[in-house]
């Protein structure tokens, strides 16, 4: 211990204190301050960038889920529309077929009626024609048969023969 105290040099102590203090102040002003400041700024910028990336990621996530939701909605809507369309089509088809059936029946009915009427008319016509023809024939026959006397006499005779006088 006393050896150490003997070795202790006050002059060196003073020089060391002076040099260290000067060094401390110069370094603090020209080196440590800008270095620490720059490190801090850099770290903050890195932190900011990380935060921004995190935010962007969250935004992405949100957008993605939004998209998903929209897509889902669209899909549902499409399904709904398709279902509706199918329903409408079905009902249309049904209506159409019903209509067609009704129409067909009516047409058939009309046709039948018309046919019946025509037939009636035709029959009436035919009867009239037949009657007319019969009259004409009868007239012509009568005219020929009764043209000479002999024939008239014969006919009368026939009549008389047939007609037995009671």
């Amino acid at each position: 211990m006393d050896q150490l105290i003997n070795d202790f040099s006050p002059g060196l102590f003073i020089m060391q204190a002076l040099i260290f203090l000067v060094l401390l102040f110069i370094l603090a002003k020209f080196a440590w301050k800008p270095i620490i400041q720059s490190l801090k700024i850099r770290e903050e910028s890195i932190q900011d960038a990380l935060d921004a990336a995190e935010r962007a990621k969250q935004e992405m996530e949100r957008l993605k889920s939004d998209n998903e939701r929209l897509l889902d909605e669209a899909r549902q809507e499409r399904e709904q529309i398709l279902k509706d369309a199918r329903q409408v089509a079905n009902s249309l088809k049904e209506e159409a077929s019903l209509d067609a059936e009704k129409q067909a029946k009516r047409i058939l009915e009309d046709a039948r009626l018309a046919i019946k009427n025509e037939k009636q008319a035709a029959l009436t016509e035919v009867k009239n024609q037949v009657a007319k023809l019969s009259l004409q024939i009868t007239e012509k026959l009568l005219r020929r048969e009764l043209a000479d006397e002999k024939a008239q006499k014969e006919l009368i005779e026939d009549f008389v023969k047939d007609t037995k006088l009671n």
Binding site: G11, L12, I14, M15, Q16, F20, L23, I26, F30
Partner: peptide, 18 residues
């Protein structure tokens, strides 16, 4: 207060640090 060998060392180290 001499510029001893140790003082030279300190100054050298200080300049190097600066």
């Amino acid at each position: 207060l001499s510029i001893t060998k140790n003082v030279v060392g300190m100054i050298f180290a200080g300049i190097l640090l600066l």
